[in-house]
Structures are given as C-alpha cells and as structure tokens.
Write a protein that binds this DNA or RNA. Structure first.
Length: 698
DNA sequence: ATAGGGTTAG
C-alpha cells in the first residue's frame, strides 16, 4: 500500500496551457448571441486562467444557478477555495449541484470537517452528495466513517459502491473491498478497474492480472484507466510478455496518447530493465509529466546508472516540471549511489524550496543519503525535524548511526522507538547489532541477539549472525566466534567467514585464520580478499614463507587482487588515486604536502606500522610504500583543495590500511580538520586524533 | 457543457 497524499498541484487540474487560446479579443464580446454563455464559460474555464473566466462571468447579465456553479467549480479546481466560498455565498439561488460542488471544493483543499458541515446544512441531499463526502472521508483515512456514510445513505448507485470499494482499497482494507465487489449488484468497468488496482497495490499483481482476464471474459470492455492499471500490474509482476501484447493492442486502438497509459508503459519497460524501450516511449509520447519523468529517473537509478538518473532529474527541472516526493526519493538515492554529498545537499535545498523536506519519504531518503555520504549529523538534523516518521525512518537513522560510529546514540534511538510503540524489524536489529559490535558492547550485543531470537515477528537471518561474529571477533574472542559460526542453524557463507578472518588479522591469530580461510577457499577458491588477509596475517607474524606460499597459490589459481584506489570529490569532480600515483596534474604539490605531513607526524612520535606491508623488504622501503598509499594521496589533495578547517571526505574501494588509519588520526590533529573516510566496509570519522570506529579498522 | 466512482512513479 503506497499512496502519497497529493501535496503538489494536481496535474489534471489545468489541461494544458499550450492548448489553442480562445481568441481573447478586446473589441468583440465573446458572449455573442450564437455562443451560449454556458459554452463560452466552459471553454474559458477549461483553457484560460481563472481570473479571465471571472471577467467573462461578470459580463453575463444575470447568470443562472448553473453558471454560478460552473464558476464556483472553476475556483475550486484552481485551488482558490476562498473565492469559491465568496461566490457561493453571493449566489441568489442554490441547487443540490451547487452545494455538492462546494462540498467537493472543501474536500479538495483537505477540509473534510467543513465539507461535512455543508452536508449537514444543505436543504436536501442526493446520492452525489453522499458519495462525495464518503469519498472525502476515505481519502483522509477515515474509512470507518466512510463506511457509516455508505450504510446510512438512502440510495446507492454503482458509483457509490465504487467509491466504497476504492475507499477500502486505498486504506489497505482489501478483504472488505473484495467482499463488497462480490456483493455489488452491477459491477462496471470502474469497479473492475478499482479491484485490479487494489490487488496490485496490495502486492498481488498476479491476481490483478488474472482478474483482468476474468473481466475480459465477462464481456466488459477495458477502458484506458483499466489498461493503465493492468500495465502497472505487469510492471510489478515483471510480466513483459503480457505487457508487450497489451502495448501492441493499445497502439492499435489508439490509447497510446493517454497520459496514464503511456506513463504506465514507461514504467513497465523501466521495471523490466528495458530502459532503452522505456526511454523511446517517453521520448515519443511527447507527454512529459512528473510521473513518467520520475519513472525514468528511478529506472536509471535501479540500473546503477546514477549519473544518467541525475541528468534526467536536472533536465526535468530545467524543463519546468516540478519534482515531487517520488522524484526526490529517486534523485537522492542516486546521490547516495554516487556518494555525491554536494549534489545531495543541493537537492535537499530544492526540497526545502518546494516545501517537501518534511515529507516522510523525502526525509527517509535524506537521512540515508547523508549517512551514506558520511554526514550522519545532517541526517540527525533531518530526523529530528521530521513530523511524521515510519519504520523506515527509524531504521535509516539507526543504521546510519551504527555505520558512522554513533553506537550509543543508535541504541538510544532504538530505545525511543519502543517508547513510540514502533515494532522493530530485521533491519532494525541489524542496525542495533552493528552498533554493538562497533562499540564492542559484548554483553549488550548478546542481549540484543537473544532479543532477536525471541521476537516472533522477526526472522533471524544470516546477517544477524554475521553481526555477532563481528562483535565476538572485535572483542578478540576468536575461538568463541568460530564455535558460534559452527553452531549456526544455517550454513555459513563466505561473508561470515571473512568477518572472522578480518578479526584474525587484527589479532594476528594464525590458527583460527587458517581454519577460516580453509572454509572460504572450499566455498570460493578465487576469493581475493581472503588471500590478501591471509598473507597479511602471515606478514604480521613475520612468517614470510607462508606469505610467499599464499601469493604463489593466488597466482597459481589465477586470483587477481583488486587494485586499491581512493577518490575524493572536489566541486563535483572526482579525483582518483592509486598507491604511489603521480599521474595527477597536482602530483608535485600533493607529494610535497605529504612529505611535510610525514615530518609533522614524526614530531608527534609517529612510527610507521610495518606490519601492513605485504612484501618482505627492508624497513626503509616499507616506509616509502606506506607513506604513499592512495588514501593518503587523496587526503593530501583534499587538504590542498579545500578551505582551512573544513571536513575532508575520502572514499576507498578496499579497507583502509591499518598504518594509514593511525596516520590519519594524527593528521586530523596536525591539520585541525575532521576527515571522513568511507572504505569498503564502514565509515571512519577522524577527529582530534581518534576515530569513530574505535580503532577496529577492518 | 454545473456536482460523485476507477488510472501513472516511489
């Protein structure tokens, strides 16, 4: 069930400003005898700004009730309820339609109470009055009251039944919708379409499709809305076969020009990873609206083509289309994928400008974006400002804190969660266990793991076990961690053994490492990370023979070590460095800065940790290799290219080297800056000589 | 051609 309240202008309100203008001539009165006032006003209300319509309306000698009501409806559609009310009050006579129109105006601006008051005040009500209020109640989630209206209404037509059915569907009361549908006397195409959409939105897309077939067999002709729904169901069920068939059919009967239909087709191809088809349809449809454009942004993002996704986002904004909650969600996701904090911030500003920053979906995306870009403080600010939160909000901030070393805060927020009676799920517990392992809260971690096992609404997954292994390993309980793995109810995977192997490196434990790596090589003989770890563990024990053997084995099995590199984004452009890299245009300055840093570090009594060199070379050489690691080069470049005192954010594709880790801690003191390094496993926030990871840098 | 029911993304 996902449905956003429409905060942004409803697209169907004003057909198109590009329609041929109704010759606005100053000399001739549009109200000529052969043009009935009703036709003229209708056209002007349809095609021209509302104030223009009002000027024409004011020229009509003595407008009848119907003309008044048309004008009231025009104000309502333009979002000008105040004007609608003023005109409504001025009306000499009112009929049921005028009252109904005003009721709808109240509902459209979100004032259901006022609509109800009007409903009670009006002299007589018809089935439309009842249905309008019923629908208004259902729209704001007051489905029980809607139900009461439905029960009480003296007469029900098909539209009334349909309103109740869709009211149930939009409020997740799918079973009730189904019952009503089966009970209703004359289901029409609207009823069927509502049910198809209902099934689809309740995650039963296959059933939606079979209902569509059933509908066709029962002789009801699908409308363009039906096709829009069915195509969405195809998209969600990844039924490209049926989707393509429908596409052909739709082309034949000329429904392709329908916005909803073409948008659904764009989504269909996007979801089925046929993005080029999706793109083609989008370009050909000529109808570029928020929804289809957002579908495109999302589609690129889903394929990991984040640059293109953000490109589409920008094009859309340039084109003058106002992004909405979904657009922002997708765009922020892509910023996340690119770790593009700068662009993420820009988009954040954009959401504020449009008044969407408090939306729960946008807020969630912002939290994730900031946390993934290493700025969890900004994520916390967003979290605190949000008026509405859901489980995803809580999970996002907990995981964000956990990954960025704010362990105690993560646990505190978890505690707050139960205060708000939010039931945690699998992801919440992963966040909590991650936090515990970060902070080496051994007992707390064990307690929470027990909690997961006892929580019947949560399934204990491999990831939870991995967190526990990480925790035990971090605390140096390597044997206990190994026993824990061997006693797991499910078969351990490579990842879980790698977690243990990493711990072995920190504690230089060869025995457990050997057993863990054996398990890994049985599962995946080409796992380069395991070879590198093993050879590091041997090296740190000065077992150069074993180091050599590991490397020979690697070569023999054709395992390629992933080259390590780091990058930093300065003013939206990305600079990459590998160890000892001199290809950067500013290489000279970078090395000069590094050498200066090296001198300062020595003053602080810093000694290179030579365990982190793989090769058996003499100490001086080791030092040279270490001092030009890619992360150091990126940081040095960052220091040169940013303002004094600002935070430096660097990424690395592999884990940060242990020597670099100690060096960067000191660098943060020497230069008086916060340095954020995101490596392949977590964030390290270096500040005033210490790191958020608690010096467990694997 | 005055008023109510189904439709697109995440």
């Amino acid at each position: 069930m996902r449905r956003f309240p429409s905060l942004i202008s409803n697209p169907k309100r004003h057909p198109s400003p590009l329609l041929p203008p109704i010759t606005p001539s100053k000399t001739s009165n549009p109200l000529t005898p052969n043009n009935s006032p009703k036709l003229v006003l209708f056209r002007i209300l349809r095609d021209r700004p509302i104030d223009e319509a009002r000027r024409v309306f004011d020229q009509i000698p003595s407008p009848d009730t119907q003309l008044f009501t048309m004008m009231v409806g025009g104000y309502s559609r333009a979002g000008r309820v105040g004007d609608a009310f003023r005109l409504f009050d001025e009306m000499p006579t009112r009929d049921v339609a005028s009252w109904n129109c005003m009721i709808k105006a109240c509902i459209d601006c979100g004032d259901v109470e006022r609509a109800r008051k009007l409903f009670d005040e009006m002299p007589e009500r018809n089935v439309i009055s009842w249905t309008t209020v019923l629908n208004g109640l259902a729209q704001v989630g007051r489905v029980d009251e809607a139900e009461e209206m439905f029960r009480k209404m003296p007469h029900r037509d098909t539209a009334a039944w349909n309103a109740m059915i869709s009211g149930y569907c939009t409020n997740g009361r799918f079973v009730d919708a189904r019952l009503l549908f089966e009970k209703m006397p004359q289901p029409n195409v609207v009823s069927w379409t509502a049910m198809i959409g209902g099934y689809d939105q309740n995650g039963e897309s296959e059933k939606a499709l079979s209902l569509f077939h059933q509908m066709c067999r029962s002789g009801i002709k699908p409308s363009s809305s039906t096709f829009a729904c069915v195509l969405t169901a195809c998209a969600n069920a990844s039924d490209l076969v049926l989707g393509t068939q429908l596409h052909t059919h739709i082309k034949k009967i000329g429904y392709l020009s329908d916005t909803y239909v073409s948008t659904s087709l764009v989504t269909l191809y996007a979801n089925c990873k046929e993005i080029e088809n999706s793109r083609k349809l989008f370009d050909e449809s000529g109808d570029r609206n928020v929804v289809s454009w957002t579908a495109l942004v999302t589609a690129y993002g889903l394929q990991g083509r984040h640059e293109e996704a953000l490109g589409e986002f920008n094009k859309m904004v340039e084109f003058g289309i106002r992004p909405n909650q979904s657009t922002f969600t997708s765009a922020l996701n892509s910023c996340c994928g690119l770790e593009a904090l700068d662009r993420g911030k820009k988009i954040h500003m954009c959401t504020i400008k449009l008044g969407l920053e408090l939306d729960v979906f946008v807020g969630n995306s912002l939290i994730v974006m900031y946390s993934k870009c290493g700025n969890v403080d900004a994520g916390l600010t967003v979290f605190n400002s949000m008026m509405r939160r859901n489980l995803v909000t809580w999970n996002s901030i907990i995981v964000g804190c956990a990954q960025n070393g704010y362990a105690s805060l993560a646990l505190k927020i978890f505690n707050d969660m139960s205060y708000y009676h939010i039931q945690p799920d699998e992801i919440t517990y992963i966040g909590i266990l991650t936090a515990c392992s970060h902070a080496r809260f051994l007992n707390k971690g064990k307690y929470f793991f027990q909690l997961v096992k006892e929580d019947t609404s949560v399934e204990v997954k491999l990831e939870h076990y991995a967190c526990m292994v990480d925790l035990l390993g971090r605390c140096g309980n390597l044997e206990e961690a190994e026993d824990f793995i061997r006693s797991m109810p499910m078969k351990p995977n490579v990842t879980i053994w790698l977690v243990l192997l990493s711990a072995c490196r920190v504690y230089s434990n060869v025995e457990v490492a050997r057993r863990a790596s054996k398990e890994i090589f049985d599962l995946d003989p080409h796992n380069s990370a395991a070879y590198v770890l093993m050879s590091n563990i041997y090296a740190s024990n000065s077992r150069w023979n074993d180091v050599l053997q590991t490397r020979v084995m690697m070569r023999f099995r054709g395992v390629v070590k992933l080259p390590g590199f780091s990058w930093i984004t300065i003013r939206e452009s990305r600079h990459e460095f590998v160890c000892g890299d001199r290809s950067h245009p500013m290489a000279k300055e970078i090395y000069k800065k590094l050498d200066w840093l090296k001198g300062r570090l020595k003053e602080y009594g810093y000694v290179y940790d030579k365990r982190f060199v793989l090769h058996d070379v003499d100490d001086e050489q080791k030092e040279t290799v270490l001092s030009y690691h890619s992360e150091k080069l990126a940081i040095s470049f960052g220091l040169l290219s940013t303002v004094e005192g600002s935070t430096i954010r660097v990424m690395k594709n592999l884990r940060v080297c242990g020597d670099c880790h100690s060096a960067i801690k000191l660098i943060s003191v020497v230069v008086g800056r916060e340095i954020v390094l995101r490596d392949s496993t977590r964030f390290h926030h270096f500040k005033n000589g210490s790191c958020s990871c608690g010096d467990y840098w694997n």
